[in-house]
Amino acid sequence: MAESTFRVWRGDGETGGFQDYTIETTTGMVVLDAVHRIQAEQANDLAVRWNCKAGRCGSCSAEVNGMPKLMCMTRLSDLPMDEPVTIEPMKAFPLVRDLVTDVSWNYRVKENIAAFQPREPDNEDGTWEIFQEDVDRVMEFRKCIECFLCQDVCHVLRDHHLHEEFIGPRFMVHVAALEMHPLDTGDRLETLRKDQGVGYCNITKCCTKVCPETITITDNAIIPLKERVVDRAYDPLAKLLRVVRRKGTPA
């Protein structure tokens, strides 16, 4: 048993500030355990969103010592406990109260992304034939638990508030999962360039750094999408090749 201090953000979107809570901590505790102990012993009205306590639901996203993390997956033993541990809500979304933010903007963004559009079935029974090696690449993107830590750390949303022009790394991953799927026939590139702001990403790789599912967001999703957009909009040689191929294809 040891005593540790946690500096927790208390307040709503209008007013608020940090408040210190000192509690007893034990080996194996994670930040969410500490928050629950504070809630049980000292601040019954502390608002915190959580669910699985296993890093699967993506509910308990917050900022611990200034870095976006899942509270349930952040061990106290990995933090410097000789000074107060700061716990804050995410900064890219409106604050509801204490550690709870309104992440509904993300759901509205997702509704706007063109859904999976599979090609006609390969077989008469309505099934398709695909190879594992072709879907391996998009399997990585399916690991996303929508904790929105990547959205929170992205400076385009967090600092510049360009929510109307940029969909953020989470949805770049979503678009990549659809665009790279071997069955999909949808074309999202022009929308990605014009309306969803792929060009705003300046490749700082902060999203990759904070992803609890270790998805290589920047290298495997965003940059490949940027390259596809270059093919479509910015590479005159690629455009010329497309025209030549189109003319060479029998009608």
Partner: peptide, 17 residues
């Protein structure tokens, strides 16, 4: 086949930190 997006408004959330 349809592509692109629908036209749901995605406004910047009010009262961001």
């Amino acid at each position: 086949m349809a592509s692109g997006t629908t036209s749901l408004p995605v406004r910047t959330p009010a009262s961001l930190p």
